[in-house]
Amino acid sequence: MPQLNPDPWFLILSLAWLTYILVLQPKILSNKSMNHPTNKNNEIIKTNPWTWPWP
């Protein structure tokens, strides 16, 4: 069964991961997010309890 021969596939897998780690990942991580986190407002919101229509 030739599909179980790991010789060509291991090389392809290794080269793909090395390409991702060494080339693509630094380029992806260098992009800056446009949505910067902001401080959440600690203001307490007063809500009214729900009045159920049945007793």
Rank of each mutant, 00 (worst) to 15 (best):
P8L: 00
L29R: 15
W9P: 00
Q25W: 06
L24R: 13
E43F: 12
L11S: 12
K27G: 08
I28W: 00
W9R: 08
I45K: 11
L4W: 06
N48Y: 10
I44N: 12
T51Y: 09
I21D: 12
N48H: 09
L4P: 00
N48D: 13
W52R: 09
I12C: 01
E43P: 01
N39E: 15
M1N: 13
T19Y: 08
N5W: 04
P26F: 05
Q25I: 02
P49R: 04
T47P: 02
N31L: 09
N42E: 14
L29F: 08
P37R: 13
F10I: 04
K32M: 00
P2Q: 01
I45P: 03
H36L: 15
N31K: 08
W52M: 14
L18P: 01
P26R: 01
T51N: 15
P2Y: 05
T19W: 00
T38M: 14
M34P: 06
W50D: 11
M1I: 12
T19R: 03
P49M: 06
L22S: 07
Q3Y: 08
K46V: 11
S14E: 12
P8Q: 02
P37N: 10
W52K: 12
L4F: 01
L22D: 05
K32S: 14
L22A: 14
K46L: 02
I21E: 13
N31I: 04
Q25G: 00
P6A: 01
H36F: 13
L29Y: 00
I44V: 10
S33L: 01
P6R: 02
N48S: 08
K27N: 08
L22W: 07
N41E: 06
N5G: 00
D7P: 00
N39Y: 15
N48K: 14
S33K: 05
N5L: 02
N31H: 13
P37M: 03
